[in-house]
């Protein structure tokens, strides 16, 4: 089966800045694919390269097997939901949704029908005559979604679409987007800097740093088996143990990741002093200083929490320590 999107050696430089630096990537046809990374890591530029808003400095892009490297945005079978929604302020909601059909040359009645159907799909029936300025943030988000979906794209690109929404609405939309993607069966490429969002929504996740992909894999892969210290730290704020320490512990000379929630207090190979603690509601997080290496430990509610300055011993179940052999970062 052909991949929906595939990159080969794709780069985009802005002057001396390598926003995207020689990236290879394949995105499957029905996948919910997440590009995750801190701001400035190149994930948004990657999305813009797929949409055609940026031209690559080097490398090629294929969309469903066709070389799209030199195709302008209006010739690509992909559509975008923008971070700021980019709704046309001079058009009402229905005309916004029907815009793509209008420039394509569809008849007026047909576009009206399709637009109203698309609005129904995002639960905005009856909002067609309003102006975008009269809608709430969540509603604008849905209009932007309907406007992209009405074009029946083969791939939908979403650029941090939930960033501007409050927490509750965001969680609701996460669920709806996931359902919608399954319903439509098309590929979603979803950009976010929120690792929680990435893990809960993605079929696969690509973690970006400094213009390069650090790791591609299922949410479980990147969370439990990070390949680089950056991934370990960025996804779920894991502890990264230095190669020296790992050598002392298990005799291998490579850094390793250790999840805060996997550490048990009481018995184990490491000893240290508690020097910070924070109550998080459902758990308490303490930080233990083991000869200069600071380890975060998550103690679930009900567990015994040591005091500041206490000496503690740290252990973990077998397999929790993940050695990062392929570490390059």
């Amino acid at each position: 089966m052909t991949a929906a999107i595939s990159f080969k050696g794709l780069s985009r430089h802005f002057g001396d800045v390598r926003a995207v630096d020689s990236v290879d990537l394949e995105i499957g046809a029905g996948e919910f694919f997440v590009l995750l990374g801190p701001s400035g890591s190149g994930k948004t530029t990657c999305l813009r390269l797929i949409a055609g808003f940026e031209r690559p400095t080097a490398g090629r892009i294929w969309i469903f097997g066709e070389d799209a490297t030199a195709a302008p945005p209006y010739r690509r079978p992909v559509n975008t939901v923008f971070q700021d929604y980019a709704l046309f302020p001079h058009l009402n909601v229905r005309d916004n949704v029907a815009y793509g059909l209008m420039v394509r040359g569809d008849a007026k009645a047909a576009r009206r029908k399709s637009a109203d159907e698309a609005l129904a799909l995002v639960a905005l029936d009856g909002f067609g005559d309003r102006k975008p300025s009269e809608l709430s943030g969540g509603q604008r988000q849905r209009v932007a979604l309907a406007r992209a979906l009405v074009m029946q794209p083969k791939v939908l690109l979403l650029d941090e679409p939930l960033g501007a929404l409050d927490l509750k609405l965001r969680e609701q939309m996460q669920g709806e987007l996931k359902t919608l993607q399954r319903q439509l069966g098309i590929a979603f490429v979803f950009v976010t800097h929120d690792q929680g969002e990435a893990l809960s929504m993605g079929d696969r996740v690509a973690v970006f740093d400094k213009g390069r992909i650090q790791q591609v894999g299922s949410p479980e892969d990147v969370y439990d088996r990070p390949e680089t210290p950056f991934v370990a730290d960025f996804v779920g704020a894991s502890n990264v143990l230095s190669a020296d320490m790992v050598h002392d512990l298990v005799g291998r000379n490579a850094p390793a990741s250790l999840r805060p929630e996997a550490i048990r207090i009481g018995f184990g190979p490491l000893a240290g002093v508690v020097h910070a603690r924070a109550f998080l509601g459902s758990a308490t997080r303490i930080e233990v200083d083991c000869d200069g290496q600071k380890l975060k430990v998550l103690i679930p509610k009900g567990g015994e929490v040591p005091q500041m300055g206490d000496s503690v011993t740290l252990g973990w179940s077998e397999g929790a320590l993940h050695i990062m052999d392929s570490a390059n970062g």
Binding site: G52, R55, I63, E66, A71, P72, Y74, R75, R76, P77
Partner: peptide, 18 residues
């Protein structure tokens, strides 16, 4: 790609933003 609408000038402008 998608549909072969003719817009040669537009295409050129996209390829050469300068």
């Amino acid at each position: 790609m998608a549909e072969a609408r003719r817009a040669p000038l537009s295409d050129t402008l996209w390829r050469r933003p300068r």
